[in-house]
C-alpha cells in the first residue's frame, strides 16, 4: 500500500512538471504583452509588469495593420470552415446513404487527402494558384481549403452511425434529398458538425506555411503578419510583438476554455477507431 502511494505522489509531481512546461510560454506571452518597453528589455528579465500596459495593444495596432490581419484571419478561417462543413456533410451523406457505384474509390480519395495537409502541398498549389493569377486574393487563399480529407472522412464515419430508417421514413414522407440532408440528417449529427467546425477553425486560424506562400500584403493572416513584423523591425520591441501575439491567441484560447473537453474527446474518439 505504501509503495502505491509513493508511486502516486511521484506521478503527481511529474504531471505537475509537465503542466508547468505546457503553460509556461502561454503565461509568459500574456505577462510580456503588458510590460513597458523598459521592462521587456530589462536585465535580468522581468516577469510581472509593475503596472499593466494595456495601451500596448493600441500602439502595436498603429505600428502594423493588426486589425486588417485579424479581419483576414477571421474571413479566411470562417469561410473555409463553413465550406468544409457543407461539402463534408453532403459528400458524407452521399457515400453513406445514397450508395452510388464508385463510392469506395471516392472514400479512399478522402482518406488519401488526410496525408497531404496544406503545408505539404504548398509549392505545387502555389504553382497552380500563381498560374491562375490568384496570388494574394481571398479565392487563392481559401478555395483550395473548401474541402479537406480530414473533414470528409470524419463526416463519412459519423454519418455511417445514422440509421437508414431515418432517411427512408423522410423519403416516404416525400422529402427531397437535399432537404433530408439540411433539415433531418444535419440536425441529427449537429455534435459532429460542431466538432468539425472547431477543428477546422483551429487548423486554419493556426496555419502558417500556406498563407505565407500565397499572400503578399492584402490577405496576410495574423501568424504570418506578426512574424513578418518581427523580422522587419530594426529594434525588436518584444512587448509589442507579445501584444499582437495575444490578439492572435485569444480566439483559440477562448475556444479551448469553452470547448476544450470536446476537442480532447474528439481526438480520443478518432484514435480509438
Amino acid at each position: 500500500m505504501r509503495t502505491l502511494t509513493a508511486k502516486r505522489v511521484r506521478a503527481y509531481v511529474w504531471l505537475t512538471l509537465l503542466c508547468i512546461f505546457a503553460v509556461l510560454p502561454v503565461a509568459y506571452v500574456f505577462l510580456l504583452a503588458l510590460q513597458t518597453n523598459a521592462e521587456a528589455a530589462a536585465l535580468p528579465p522581468t516577469l510581472f509588469p509593475a503596472s499593466p500596459q494595456f495601451e500596448n495593444f493600441s500602439v502595436v495596432a498603429e505600428r502594423m495593420p493588426l486589425a486588417r490581419y485579424f479581419y483576414n484571419s477571421v474571413v479566411f478561417s470562417l469561410s473555409t470552415t463553413v465550406a468544409v462543413i457543407l461539402t463534408s456533410l453532403f459528400a458524407g451523406y452521399a457515400t453513406t446513404k445514397l450508395r452510388m457505384p464508385g463510392r469506395r474509390f471516392i472514400i479512399s480519395m478522402f482518406v488519401g487527402g488526410i496525408l497531404i495537409p496544406p503545408a505539404i502541398r504548398a509549392i505545387p498549389l502555389y504553382t497552380m494558384i500563381a498560374r491562375l493569377n490568384l496570388v494574394d486574393t481571398w479565392a487563392g487563399l481559401s478555395l483550395p481549403l473548401m474541402a479537406t480529407g480530414f473533414g470528409l472522412f470524419f463526416m463519412h464515419q459519423f454519418l455511417k452511425t445514422v440509421p437508414d430508417s431515418v432517411v427512408e421514413a423522410a423519403r416516404i414522407d416525400g422529402c427531397s434529398e437535399s432537404r433530408i440532408v439540411l433539415q433531418i440528417v444535419g440536425p441529427l449529427v449537429l455534435p459532429a458538425l460542431v466538432t468539425l467546425f472547431i477543428y477546422n477553425f483551429l487548423f486554419r486560424w493556426n496555419g502558417y506555411l500556406w498563407p505565407l506562400v500565397v499572400t503578399r500584403r492584402t490577405w496576410t493572416t495574423l501568424p504570418v503578419g506578426i512574424s513578418v513584423f518581427k523580422t522587419s523591425e530594426q529594434l525588436i520591441t518584444w512587448n509589442l510583438i507579445a501584444a499582437a501575439a495575444v490578439v492572435t491567441l485569444i480566439p483559440v484560447l477562448g475556444l479551448f476554455f469553452a470547448v476544450g473537453g470536446r476537442i480532447v474527446k474528439g481526438i480520443a474518439m478518432q484514435a480509438s477507431k
Binding site: V23, V26, I263
Partner: peptide
Amino acid sequence: IIFLPYVVTPAIATLV
C-alpha cells in the same frame, strides 16, 4: 492543461 499547446498557434508560440 498538458494538451493546451496543441491549440496554440505554432508561429506565435515559436516566436515566444
